[in-house]
Nucleic acid binder design. Structure first.
Lengths: 144, 144
DNA sequence: GTAATTGCAAATTATTTGCATTGCC
DNA sequence: GGCAATGCAAATAATTTGCAATTAC
């Protein structure tokens, strides 16, 4: 399978867009991170390596990366946009602790299958879905 | 079961807050609507009946109504915040058409059950969840 | 009476856009 | 070389907040 970098270059070229040092650097910074990042955090990280990069470029590049399917946007209901690397990873959903923010990636074939079925029953062609489970993790559960 | 109005009054009183004409009017406007409303749309609707109500009051009241469990916020990934009446309604998820925005409420006991199980397996106490299925509806499907 | 609420406008926050300049293919 | 990309600053958009005046309980 192509690396994220190769995939991005490919996507850009397919769309008649260009690879640039800025775009490469932004992708690098995202790939190094294991956490779910906000545009602001990515911007900070990028600037440490090249302070000349503008915030607008980060936003523009995030949009491109999402269109290319390399990253995916999340919604943890904490008021901040977040992204995670999607390239080469299997689809998964999130189980989020409302108290400490901890989140666990979950994967469940049964639910995925059922979602397909539900969509079909309504005549829909499913393209993607988002599922978030909110609750209290074992640690925070005890503190209440 | 209490009416939404009664529930809201109850909630306010429990929190040592006060019922006001503005709050009552805002709730009324939300209840009359069957669609999923944005703060802006609610504000417009409220102003038609009482043009002196401020936008800030609408935002503040929406927050209270959500805390009281009378309305719930949605995320249709169209960049706008939306609310729907939750009081007295069974929980449901949404199947959304990416082309025309049409959305269908879905309910699936099997998925609900499985979500509980998954949370338990990770030691979580589940409080709520959100699930959105995105795709193309029968109408839009044909046009591609 | 007193603390909560309101409307207003200003302040924030998050993101987007216009534009002259720069740089990739 | 030509079109796309960049950085900057200004522009939007959506929401929040400070505050003096008002009002519910």
């Amino acid at each position: 399978m192509k690396t994220p970098q190769e995939a991005f270059t490919q996507y850009l070229s397919d769309e008649n867009l260009k690879m640039t040092p800025q775009r490469g650097l932004i992708l690098e910074c995202i790939l190094e991170q294991t956490q779910h990042l906000s545009p602001e955090e990515i911007y900070d990280k990028v600037r440490k390596r090249d302070s000349s990069v503008g915030q607008a470029t980060v936003y523009r590049t995030l949009k491109l990366l999402a269109e290319a399917g390399i990253i995916e946007s999340l919604d943890f209901a904490d008021g901040v946009a977040r992204y995670e690397v999607a390239w080469g990873k299997e689809h998964h959903d999130h189980l989020i602790c409302e108290a400490c923010g901890k989140n666990i990636e979950i994967m469940d074939p049964m639910i995925e299958k059922r979602q397909e079925t539900i969509a079909e029953e309504h005549g829909f062609k499913l393209s993607h879905h988002k599922m978030y489970l909110y609750g209290l993790c074992p640690d925070c559960r005890g503190k209440r």
